[in-house]
Each structure stands twice: as structure tokens, then as C-alpha cells.
Design a protein around this nucleic acid. Structure first.
Lengths: 212, 212
DNA sequence: CTTGACATACGAACTAGTTAGTACATTTTG
DNA sequence: CAAAATGTACTAACTAGTTCGTATGTCAAG
């Protein structure tokens, strides 16, 4: 375990990379790809700009690494929920709550996705790691919908990707558009009561849609 | 009426401003505030960079003008729909369809709002013109919800702002996140069939939510 | 219906400051 | 010692904003 004394330098590549990524994540998520400043990131790091280029090659390389790390962190979100043990409606509500809480807890991630959309998902396209993600959610939802339909709980046969989009849209929008929405309607979407109400709302909406 | 001959210059301030705004809208919406290049905008204009500063003062001034114009264009969207003549459910479905179609038809606007959120709605805050907008939608929705509840069509007493958010979230997300979502799930959200299905979906979801 | 004077509208070229990226030297580690 | 890791100081290119000079419109006086 490398420690940093008063002046003596200790090499710790992993720590250095992590440090850069942490700072960069915040810088990119608050300023966008073009708005982020490599010098600004370097300053906030305990290392130097040289290291950014040493490990990530370029500003875009760093951005891509940030994006990949962010996606990797949420990869196994719903896989350890064990939803197949639950009743369909309960399983669906649990999945929705999890998505909701994740977006609420990770505004940096939400913002990075917004930024990536402004760039037409160009970097995501070049990263297989990210492209192959998220497919498991769809299978999870498909299973729930099928069980629910067979048991007569859901009257509607819906496309799992559509359902996932409906859930994502609501959870994501609350975070991604909190500033413009909050400004126009003078409402704080991070307010405790509002969070509770919205969490229940999206679940009720999806369930009632499937039951109708 | 000023015309532009082969080489002779004609002054036409209004046209010049409009021209700049049109080009700038697209530049900002595709590259973001920091990513947009004033030189690039100037090139695509039939006028010069000098004029951008002459009329808009700064890059941010131009960005703000673009933002304001975009919002102004959608201001009177739902005001000429005459929803009060319709049955509550029909009125709501009409309003939802209109929102849906607007977002689908104006990706530049959607992207600008995304960009503005990345900047914590800082520019929007400084513009009273924008802040005072959109409040009429809420009154429209409030009216519909009340009538529907009184007539026993809607069983749920929902907050009109929440309902507006639910509608906006779905319609907005489809456009704002079309690239990342499309990339991950290999689905083209601008596809004709998908558009039709989604338009019906959000309406059914909101209505069934209110009826449940 | 000219003329000329003044304000507005415009263009080309320039500048000062910024920013991504690098060359080179130095230290750490195995 | 050799390879990996790091710091310092620099540069080439870019970019927002400006300077200076010119053209155009208009309106009043002749």
C-alpha cells in the first residue's frame, strides 16, 4: 500500500487513475465534453496533467473512460434483486423503485448520458463494453410481463423495451431536467416528499397501464 | 423589400438577425454551448462574425437569444386547441398528442433544453421571458383533471404539475435520449410504427393512471 | 429630386488569451 | 540497471472578441 509522505513521491498507478477518473467524471458531467477543461481536471487531481495523457491519451480518451466506468458501475444493478421469486406486480414495482433510486442517487451518470446524447452517442458507439450493457433488464422485464399476463394480472401484452423506456423516461427526466423544470414551475424535484410521491406515481402508472 | 443582387450589398437587419439565429440554433443544439464555434456559425451565415457581435454582443448573448426564440415559438401551442369543449379524457388525449408531436417535430428545441440543464438552467434563470412561460399548460391540465374527477371519469385526484411532468418526461425522453437508447437497444425511435405506438402508449398510461 | 450629412449596417483582418497536447528531465520500483 | 511512473515547462493551434474602415439607408435642406 503506497502512502504519500510529506515530500517523498510514491508511485501508485491504480490510485492515480482512479483519482483522475473521479475528478474527470464530475468535470465532464458539469461542463460537458467541450466545456470541460483538462487543466481544470489536472488541478483538482493530486497528480498532474501529464498523467492524464499518460494513462488516457487524450481528452476524448478520458471522456470515454469516464463514460465506460459510469456504465460499468450500474451494470449489475438489477441482477442481484432476485425478482423471479416475487409476484409479477411486486417484482415490477421493485424494479421500478430500484431504477428510480439509482437515477436519483447518480445525477452525474444521468448528466453524462445527456451529454452523450448531444454528441449523438458517438463515443458509446465506439465502445463495445457499453453497447452490450443493459440488455439484461429487458429480459428481466420480459419475464415479469409474461408471468403477469399468464396469471391474468396484466391484461395488456406490452413490449418489454417500451415498458423499460417508459420507466426510464420518467426516472431519468426527473433528474436530467430538474433545473429547467424546477425553474419554470418553481418546484424542487429533489424535495423529500416529491421524491416519495413520484416514486409511487411511476409504479402506479406502469402497473395500471398494464392492467388496463 | 431588400434584395441581394449578384454582388451589391443590401442592408436587411431583420433578415440578418433571423439568419444568424437560424444557423446558431442548429450549431448550439448539435454541439452544446461550449462546443459551438462562433466562427463556424459565422461561416454558415450569409453574413459575418462581426454581425453576430453587433447584434448579440457575445457568444452567450447569442445562445440566450436562440433559447428565447425557441421557447417563444412554442408558447401558444396549447392555447389554440380549445380543449374545454371536449370531454375530459378526449381533451387530455389531445393535449398529450400535441405535446408528443411537438417534441418529435422539434429535436433542436429538445436538445437545447438538455443543454440548458447541463448548465443548471443558468441562462433561463436570467431570462424572465422564459421563466414566465408554460404556466398556462398547468391551468389547462388542472381544468381537465377537475372536470374529469367531478364527472367520475377519473378516480384519482392528481397534481396537474405531476401529470404534466409525466407527459413531458415520456415525450421528451424519446427525443433527447434517442441516440443512447437507440444504440443500446438497437431500436430506431424515429421509426413510423414506433412513433404511432408510443403516442398511444403515453396517452393510455396517463389515462389509466387517473382512472385507477 | 438632388445633395450631403449622419446613423445604421456591414466586411476583412487582426489580437490577446486560452487550451489540448508534448518534450524532456527526474524519480520510483522491481 | 531498466522499465514504469511522474513533474515541469513549453508550444502550436484555436477561438472569442475587436479594430478599423467601408457601404448603405434616410431625411432634411436646397
Amino acid at each position: 500500500m503506497a502512502e504519500r509522505g510529506e515530500n517523498g513521491r510514491k508511485n501508485d498507478p491504480e490510485q492515480t487513475k482512479e483519482d483522475i477518473l473521479l475528478v474527470a467524471t464530475h468535470e465532464f458531467s458539469t461542463h460537458g465534453l467541450a466545456g470541460a477543461r483538462v487543466d481544470s481536471i489536472a488541478e483538482k487531481t493530486r497528480t498532474s496533467k501529464r498523467m492524464i495523457y499518460y494513462y488516457f491519451g487524450s481528452k476524448e480518451g478520458l471522456y470515454l473512460a469516464v463514460l465506460e466506468q459510469s456504465y460499468r458501475k450500474i451494470r449489475s444493478l438489477e441482477s442481484d434483486l432476485h425478482l423471479s421469486n416475487l409476484e409479477p406486480e411486486e417484482a415490477l414495482r421493485t424494479l421500478i423503485s430500484t431504477t428510480f433510486d439509482h437515477d436519483e442517487a447518480n445525477p452525474d451518470f444521468v448528466r453524462l448520458v445527456s451529454i452523450e446524447n448531444i454528441h449523438h452517442a458517438a463515443h458509446m458507439l465506439r465502445s463495445e463494453a457499453i453497447r452490450d450493457l443493459n440488455v439484461s433488464v429487458i429480459e428481466t422485464i420480459a419475464g415479469i410481463l409474461e408471468r403477469g399476463f399468464d396469471q391474468g394480472i396484466f391484461r395488456r401484452k406490452a413490449d418489454p423495451i417500451d415498458i423499460h423506456m417508459m420507466i426510464s423516461a420518467f426516472c431519468f427526466f426527473r433528474v436530467s431536467n430538474r433545473y429547467t423544470f424546477g425553474t419554470i414551475f418553481r418546484r424542487n424535484l429533489s424535495d423529500g416528499d416529491t421524491i416519495e410521491r413520484h416514486r409511487g406515481m411511476i409504479a402506479d402508472a406502469v402497473v395500471s397501464y398494464l392492467k388496463s
